[in-house]
Design a protein around this nucleic acid. Structure first.
Length: 154
DNA sequence: GCCAACGTTGGC
DNA sequence: GCCAACGTTGGC
């Protein structure tokens, strides 16, 4: 089983919105970065765990845990000219972009802020806190994942 | 709102 | 294939 972190801007899609979805499940659509796509398309498997992270907000923070409930399939928002994430180079018969479905397992009682992660020496190697990393989907080590969950309980 | 870091585009 | 220009991300 693998562990992941996915960023979302709460103004765009928040964890509370996910909590209100049917079956607390949503598609992780709109990813338009090849490296992030490759992680979703090639490596994310059913049952993988997924940290939900709020970016571009105050404060940026991990806010909960999800589980992958559907492995990658074409991101249909890329086919829709009306959609913000429309991409004309992605075709029905040869899609460029993929997504997975995730289900909310637990919303943290307490968000774990980016600053707290930076201050925790056990998390010093996380991709998230390395300078200039803009990946919206990235792998997380099991020990890092567990540490963040632990921090949310304190 | 600023701006550093990074990815993508397109002319050559 | 190089690289300058441009657009985006995302913390601050």
């Amino acid at each position: 089983m693998k562990y992941w972190l996915g960023k979302s801007e709460p103004d765009c899609y928040s964890i509370d919105r996910l909590a209100g979805e049917k079956n607390k499940t949503t598609s992780w659509d709109g990813v338009r970065n090849y490296q992030a796509r490759n992680f979703m398309r090639d490596e994310m498997k059913l049952g993988d765990m997924f940290l939900f992270y709020h970016s571009n907000t105050k404060p940026p923070a991990a806010v909960g845990i999800c589980e992958v409930v559907k492995e990658s399939y074409p991101d249909f928002t890329a086919f829709d000219p009306e959609d913000d994430h429309f991409d004309p180079k992605s075709k029905d018969d040869n899609p460029t972009w993929f997504m997975v479905d995730v289900r909310l397992v637990e919303k943290f009682n307490r968000p774990v802020s980016l600053q707290e992660m930076k201050e925790n020496p056990k998390l010093k190697d996380m991709k998230l806190i390395q300078k200039g990393n803009r990946l919206s989907v990235m792998p997380v080590l099991k020990k890092e994942f567990n540490e963040i969950v632990k921090m949310s309980k304190k």
